[in-house]
């Protein structure tokens, strides 16, 4: 009987897992360059260490474009985030510095636990403000 219940349990769990895979794009693992769209800007991001490392300070490369595809320089970023499930923030305070043609370094990121993380970007450029979020699963 127990085996039977376990079998149904696993069946349902597997269905749920497959369902959630279909419903959402997989969270960022660092292997590829990806983007996220805000109201005004498109932010590309790529970890320079792959996969995104656990418990190690590392750097991402960012590219910021308008929704028309023009690179945006001189943007001011505020970066924050954390693990919603554990109600804590990022263990570090990352910083963003630009180096032209819409390119920026995001330095000082660290993810100290396995699980789901969110990294939020408040972007201010050319008189416009935007907010985008990247989800990660470590």
């Amino acid at each position: 009987m127990k085996k039977h219940i376990d079998g149904i349990h696993t069946y349902l769990l597997t269905l749920l897992a497959i369902g959630s895979l279909l419903a959402h794009a997989p969270a960022y693992s660092g292997d590829t360059k990806q983007f996220v769209d805000g109201a005004h800007f498109r932010l590309y991001y790529k970890s320079t260490t792959t996969p995104v490392p656990l418990n190690e300070i590392h750097t991402w490369l960012l590219h910021l474009y308008t929704r028309d595809g023009e690179p945006v320089d001189g943007a001011h970023f505020r970066v924050y985030g954390g693990m919603p499930a554990h109600r804590h923030g990022l263990p570090t305070q990352p910083r963003v510095s630009g180096f032209g043609d819409g390119h920026y370094w995001l330095q000082g990121l660290k993810f100290s636990m396995q699980g789901e993380w969110e990294v939020w970007f408040d972007i201010e450029a050319a008189g416009k403000t935007d907010r985008v979020m990247v989800e990660l699963e470590l």
Binding site: H88, G89, T92, G108
Partner: peptide, 10 residues
């Protein structure tokens, strides 16, 4: 040290 978080939430 350079990137240490200081916010109260963390």
């Amino acid at each position: 040290l350079s990137f240490a978080a200081t916010d109260h939430r963390t």
